[in-house]
Amino acid sequence: MNKFLVTASVSLALIALSSCTNKSVVRYGDATEVETTNINFGSTDLQKVASQMTDSLLLSPVVGTLTVNTRPILFVESIKNKTSEHIDTESITDSISTKLLRSGKFRFVDMGRVAAVREQLEFQQNSGMVDASKAMAFGQQVGAQYMLYGNLASIVKSNKDKSDVYYKFTLRLMDLKSGLIEWADETEIRKSKEKEFVSW
């Protein structure tokens, strides 16, 4: 009897323990929520950088005077990734330029699509398939007046218990005619990971 009870309790304990193992569950999450999966550059950092830079640019008095009766034309030069990670900086510039466009204050030209535009115009002009009176002509595009460019840098430090990363994102707006920098700002992000005791 006693032997049976020992076996029963041991197996019960084993079942209980094994039921604690991970079970994968798929869920749709909130894409705008703060995400703390690990210390690497994540969606929250991208959203924070994009919204802070856009807010700062749109709030600056210089931009206030630049946009009084006109919507200046911008082009985004790439953001240089100087961090030790692989980060899609085009995604950051996409977010920033989308937000700036939606504010109604600026217009953009897209340098990343020049080849496609040229191909389309050549088709309209030279293929003989498009009505010549309705074909888009070469040499009528509007040039950008300002250039938006920046850097993303990081400092990473760690010891056996803690790791810490500091990101600094700098963005500048240059007047292409005069070469003057009309506006500049930077934003910082600090993230750290520490070992913590698990409390029962």
Binding site: D30, T32, E33, T44, Q47, K48, S51, R102
Partner: peptide, 10 residues
């Protein structure tokens, strides 16, 4: 305006 696009900021 812009439902679901305003990010949660840490």
């Amino acid at each position: 305006i812009e439902a679901g696009k305003s990010p949660w900021q840490p």
